[in-house]
């Protein structure tokens, strides 16, 4: 394939990665922004979303769309409930102390991951996409007969991938509207700005925290449900989304939602293109070093303006 069509293909794949990544990272960013909690178990909530999606699709049977549609609702809700329970039994008791909550969420990571291993097992299992029409993409080429429209082999996408991008954009707009246009969003932003002041104004900060932690986890689970027809559900699949979300949240500026989305798009799009030039391991090495160095030399994030 020529470079032109190849870049289009890489950008399309990158857009799918970016969409899913944006959802996951916004969940992490929300939790850090409002609660100042670094949730190391975030990737496991993602993994749980995918595994629950498989369970739901497996039990439902019938047309794949039915099971998938059900999973879209059940997985985020269930994962959200688990996260709320974890918040109320663990994080709340630690008084949201930043360092101790990190240690506790590391423990949570192993608990969720290993319980999944014990119940779901070590296999990777696919979920069938609700619809999956192949869409070829034309390319224009200046040949002997002037400009011509051709259909290069391999250049194309599926209706499902486009739907993932559309769904992610819709959900992100929904989150944005929730934060900016509703009373709940106002309460969350007030809590983020000044916890003590929010308490003084009678905002039930603990309930807000539980809700935010649940919402953050639900977003990760939703992202996983969207991606599971393309990847597969596996008990160790939480590692990469966690690392990538960290990268995105740190580069976008800790706790800033627009920065997070922008960084997710940048990282997602460049991911496809970078992997053309580097081996995946080298790309990961560079990415982790980048996160470390950004935190050391530009803690407000590459895209952020103010310090945290």
């Amino acid at each position: 394939m020529e470079l032109g069509p190849y870049l289009i293909l890489a950008s399309l794949e990158g857009a799918v990665t970016a969409a899913v990544l944006a959802l996951t990272a916004v969940g992490l960013s929300l939790v850090f922004g409002v609660m100042r909690v670094v949730n190391i178990a975030h990737g496991e909530f993602f993994m749980l979303g995918a595994v629950i999606a498989w369970w739901v699709a497996h039990i439902t049977g019938g047309h794949p769309a039915i099971g998938f549609a059900l999973a879209l609702i059940v997985a985020p809700v269930l994962v959200g409930v688990i996260a709320v329970a974890a918040d109320m039994t663990i994080l709340k008791r630690l008084d949201y102390d930043p360092e101790r909550t990190i240690v506790a969420t590391i423990g949570l990571l192993y608990i969720i991951q290993q319980l999944t291993l014990m119940t779901y097992g070590p296999e990777a299992r696919p979920v069938e996409a609700p619809f999956n029409t192949r869409l070829a993409i034309p390319w224009f080429k200046n040949g002997e007969d002037g400009w011509q429209m051709i259909w290069p082999w391999g250049l194309g996408t599926t209706s499902y991938k486009l739907a993932v991008i559309g769904a992610a954009v819709t959900v992100l707009l929904g989150v944005w509207a929730l934060m900016k246009r509703t009373r709940i969003g106002l309460v969350m932003r007030a809590t983020q700005a000044d916890r003590e002041m929010a308490l003084a104004f009678g905002i039930p900060v603990e309930r807000v925290y539980a809700m935010v932690f649940g919402l953050g986890a639900a977003l990760a689970a939703l992202a996983a449900v969207l991606i599971v027809p393309i990847q597969q559900a596996h008990y160790l699949m939480g590692g990469d989304p966690l690392l990538l979300s960290f990268i995105v949240v740190i580069i976008g500026g800790l706790g800033s939602l627009p920065g997070t989305v922008l960084a997710a798009v940048l990282i997602g799009l460049s991911d496809g293109i970078i992997s053309v030039f580097f081996s995946p391991t080298l790309a990961k090495i560079l990415a982790t070093l980048l996160v470390g160095l950004v935190l050391v030399f530009r803690p407000q994030g590459l895209l952020g303006k103010r310090g945290v």
Binding site: V38, E99, T288, V291, G292, L295, V296, F297
Partner: peptide
């Protein structure tokens, strides 16, 4: 490098560099 940061940032920086080492 890492001692230019503190608290949570120190934890993440050490985590990231160690992960880079593993990779």
């Amino acid at each position: 490098l890492a001692l230019r940061t503190a608290g949570v940032a120190f934890m993440i920086v050490t985590l990231m560099f160690a992960q880079a080492g593993y990779l």
